[in-house]
Amino acid sequence: MKTIKRWGPPVLLLTPSMILLAVFVYGLIAANFATSATDSHTAAQATGAQPTVFVGIQNYLDLLASEAFQHSLKNLLLYTVVFLVGTMLIGFMWAWLLERPMRGEGLFRSVYLFPMAVSFIASGVVWRWLLNSNEGEAALGLNRLFQMVGLDFLQNPWWNNITWGIAAIALPAIWQLSGYVMALFLAGFRGVPEELREAGRMDGASEWQVYRHVIFPQLSPVALSALIIIGHMSLKAFDLIMSISKPSNYQTKVPAVDMYVFKSSFDYANSAAVGAILLIIVAVLVVPYLIHTSRKEASGR
């Protein structure tokens, strides 16, 4: 009776969300994997008018062997690298500049953080125009700006370059999320007790040495969190690409776009397989982090 009193309310409160999670997250992930292991490539099979056959990992093998999907994966890698390096560097620099309390800090913080409030779709519409690929007389957006300030040699086709185009889509993403990374790092900087700095200075460390050996090492958990957050956002990149480019544009294909295109053409098996591959990539990134943090929490107690 006493145990029920103690455990009853929490269990009662948790059960609905547990059931919802079990059905709508894990149940659907299982359904996704099940679909990806069938040959359901047509509308008729999707509705059950024609039978589907279990094909194991055949869809995965076919996808990974196809040149088009390799191109998507390569794009995803390039996008992720540029996005991560860009946001981490810029966010860190901003945080470092704002680290010492100064006048107008609140203003700068807001200015840097505001782009995050804009949805990817809305900013994509603007950036599609800024990143117009016309050069010379018909140039618009950034290319036109380069001409006006005499930097004509900087003109480039932006996202329409077949190899590097996807990196141009990372620019708006960097613009939007650098402020967020800055906020994370700023919190990290503020979390370092003033006493530690003073102790460093007492020991004769120069200002740079204080940063290098006392403060930066304490920021590594923040850096890791930022890396994970930005990294998993990057892997799910879809809305920004859809609003700047179009799903059928080869130069900006990533797995999430492939998943959409497959789904629209009733190829549910391949669509599910692409989804599963994305999930696995994200898991490879996130699960070690989760294990790491839970271990640390356990040992911290």
Binding site: L131, N132, E135, A138, L140, S245
Partner: peptide
């Protein structure tokens, strides 16, 4: 024909 077209077509 495509060689005569505008370069910003995909957007």
């Amino acid at each position: 024909l495509m060689s005569f077209t505008n370069t910003d077509r995909d957007g």
